[in-house]
Computed example of a mutant assay.
Amino acid sequence: MSQTDSEFQSLREKFYNATVIERIDCHENLARFRIRPDNGVPAFIAGQYVTLGLGYWEPRLSGTQVENVPEKKRHKLIRRAYSISCPLLDDDGQVASIDSLDYLEFYITLVRASSSPDQPPPALTPRLFELQAGDRVEVGKKIVGKYVVGEVDPDATILMLGTGTGEAPHNAMTASLLAAGHRGRIVNACCVRYLGDLGYYPRHLLLMNHFSNYRYLPCTTREPINIDPSMPGYVGKQYLQDLFTSGKLAEAADDPLSPENTHVYLCGNPDMIGYVPPGGDPPATPGLLPLLESAGFLPADHDHESGPGRIRFEKYW
């Protein structure tokens, strides 16, 4: 082992406190990582997040954007926050809630290059996607976050709307609700480009077979049925905003999705959520927040926080 390799190994021993026990590739740019902390999984609430960290000294996946690491960063960690997901079902086909697991599951998209020449190359995911079972990583000391289900009536409707890997906390929420015996409708809708971007799809189908009150609604935007009017079953691009305002979402959910009995959770693309900071200009195409408010729902920080009709959303920006 060279002096440099020895130095990096010492840094791994100093910083890393968890082991990748399994990696499940959905496709080349999407994977589920199961990571076991050395000191066990601390108690946390479904929907919360924690940081993952790797050293700048770790190798990057071949085919990702070249990165020139300054010497002053060479011995430091890159840390990013990720919502904790859930496998939904255990090996016996039973609901796997977060408190039944001895590992943390993460649902991560590989970012191969920055979206703009003005932005630095992505630092963490090109290194994460080099990891295999047995490799080491840092997990943050605290699992935190306010994006949780909160207090809901067991007969209330739960509507979770996400895009891409924004589905992760909703999976954890879904499993926890079902394990607790929630009786009301649970609707988990996720919008992606292609069906292949739904890494948990088969598990959701199994879950629907087990629970008649659960609905998983996959929505796509780039499949042939979304872009080619000549295709049998053509539906156009299925954006969650359009599905909600048109009533198609309520129809597919087999539930009126009324603010009188429905709690709403939003996670994923900021354009889908549609949060406008105070003093900000609203976008030309509104996100779900103003559309939901127009339908009678209220932000969760409103005075009526204790009842149905609330909107909670995760902020990734």
Rank of each mutant, 00 (worst) to 15 (best):
K141P: 02
K141G: 03
A168Q: 05
S115V: 13
G140F: 01
I143Q: 03
L161W: 02
G145D: 05
E138I: 04
P126K: 06
D155S: 09
G134V: 08
V139H: 02
I143A: 00
L128I: 14
L110Y: 10
A133G: 13
D118R: 15
G162P: 04
L161R: 04
G150D: 03
G145F: 08
H170K: 00
P120V: 13
G150L: 04
L159K: 00
F129C: 05
R136W: 08
K141D: 08
P154G: 09
G150Q: 00
M160V: 05
K142Y: 01
Q119K: 15
Y147H: 03
V111N: 02
A123V: 11
K146P: 02
A123Y: 10
G150W: 02
L131C: 14
P121L: 13
M160W: 03
R127V: 11
V152H: 07
S116G: 13
L161S: 05
V139L: 12
T165F: 04
L128N: 07
G134P: 05
V148I: 15
P169I: 00
F129D: 04
V152C: 12
G134H: 06
I158C: 01
P121E: 12
G164Y: 03
V139N: 00
Q119F: 14
H170Y: 03
A168D: 06
R112C: 11
S115I: 11
T163F: 03
V137I: 15
P122W: 07
G164A: 08
D155R: 04
P126T: 08
D135M: 01
V152G: 05
M160S: 06
L128R: 08
D153N: 14
F129H: 08
G164K: 01
E138D: 10
A168W: 06
K142W: 03
V148K: 04
S114D: 14
P122Y: 10
A133E: 13
V111W: 01
Y147R: 02
K141Y: 00
T165V: 10
G145H: 05
L128F: 11
R136K: 10
S116T: 13
E151G: 10
A156D: 13
L128A: 10
I158L: 11
K146D: 05
P122N: 11
D153P: 00
P122T: 12
A168Y: 01
R136G: 00
T165M: 02
E130T: 15
